[in-house]
Design a protein around this nucleic acid. Structure first.
Lengths: 209, 209
DNA sequence: CGCAGAATGCTTCAAATTGTTACAAAAACC
DNA sequence: GGTTTTTGTAACAATTTGAAGCATTCTGCG
């Protein structure tokens, strides 16, 4: 669970983490909840629960019209919140792609098995391929955000925990080194594809093991 | 059970002990419970129960938003506290990594058995490998915080009970000596891995015996 | 098509970080 | 007191990483 205090932080969190659900208070400093809700909806189908003040019927209606999936009146019963969250996920059972869960220790993709606990990458013959700390972090980030393009900024932020300076090409070099290790043909990458103008994207199917 | 009286002590306890569950009073000297809760959540998935004053609904909501798993209103019934603790552990049944319990005397990892009481390390043939005091402390710290990276500062603090002076490399040498004793191939460590820029991480599966 | 400009790939190299050896100080032991 | 063990310091070796810079690929346009 990530808690942020304004729209800017929210966008950053949505970008850097795999957020499954958004709970949005209407009363916020800076941009209000409605604006954020509409904004998120433009780019994402992530479930949104809006928190409204007591009995503001118009607020609820507006929120739902702007794309919220549910609303809750403050003060609310946590059990009710949990119930609504479960309900939303039941409802959205269909098209989710979040295969990689935080809890799963090993994941498989292509002919590789990546052990997230022991930081080991093994090929089909169970032979360990050594990854440096940076290579492992980068691969973990890509695998975790499987099938969605990540910008260099995002990757630097995830791997190094700081935002990148302009003209920073370090990620490109790490990608290059990683490809050399995990791609059959580094010239024709099948796992880590370049999304020109955006960044990189992990393309293989990732399944927990 | 460990009881501490402020945030600083809490962080120290969380770092130096294997805490399974945190009960956090909102009313605290210094940093308040919310700040601590959010802070803990940034680095840990440890279950948190917050203690709130009577009927402060907003407190409850805020606590849950900041990552608490449950709340309890003061004054509370001890039975209820127990029930909620059990519920949380049931709920979290899935992805817990805290295999090493405080109570277990011996642990196994790789081909080794470490007796935490008698401070003896034995190999698969039951032969004792002698560890110095420092080596044992370091190994115990790593095993206890199994699968999470520990900074040099943390390790020095745990092993020597004082914070390190800058440019202190003593931990690196101790790690090197420990690896020479417990790793099959000290050049390719499987048990104690380096996390560049962070510290060291114990990677093997640890199970109580 | 061919070209210019931009984005990306990748080699080389130096800086930063970590690993390890040798030796001395400190502590423990007898 | 003398000896052994343990631990830290200094120095050097090995590894990892990012910057510089050139090569290559892609895109839009004449």
């Amino acid at each position: 669970m990530t808690t942020v205090s304004d729209g800017t932080e929210m966008r950053k969190a949505l970008r850097d983490w795999n957020i499954d659900l958004l709970i949005l208070d209407i009363m916020l400093p800076g941009e209000d909840g409605f604006a954020l809700c509409r904004d998120v909806r433009r780019t994402s189908k992530i479930p949104i629960i809006m928190l409204t003040a007591v009995g503001e019927d118009t607020d609820r209606i507006l929120g739902l019209e702007l794309g919220a999936d549910d609303y809750l009146t403050k003060p609310f019963n946590p059990r009710e919140l949990l119930a609504r969250i479960r309900a939303i996920f039941r409802r959205a059972e269909t098209g989710t792609t979040e295969i990689v869960e935080n809890s799963s220790e090993k994941v498989r993709f292509g002919n590789w098995v990546l052990n997230l606990g022991s930081r080991e990458l093994r090929d089909a013959d169970d032979v360990v391929v050594h990854l440096s700390t940076g290579e492992f972090s980068l691969l973990r980030a890509l695998v975790k955000h499987n099938k969605r393009p990540l910008s260099r900024d995002q990757l630097v932020d995830i791997v190094r925990g700081q935002s990148s300076i302009p003209f920073d090409r370090s990620i490109d070099i790490q990608i290059s080194r990683l490809r050399r290790k995990i791609e059959k043909d580094a010239k024709n990458p099948k796992l880590i594809k370049t999304v020109r103008g955006i960044g990189y994207q992990f393309c293989a199917d990732v399944s927990p093991l």
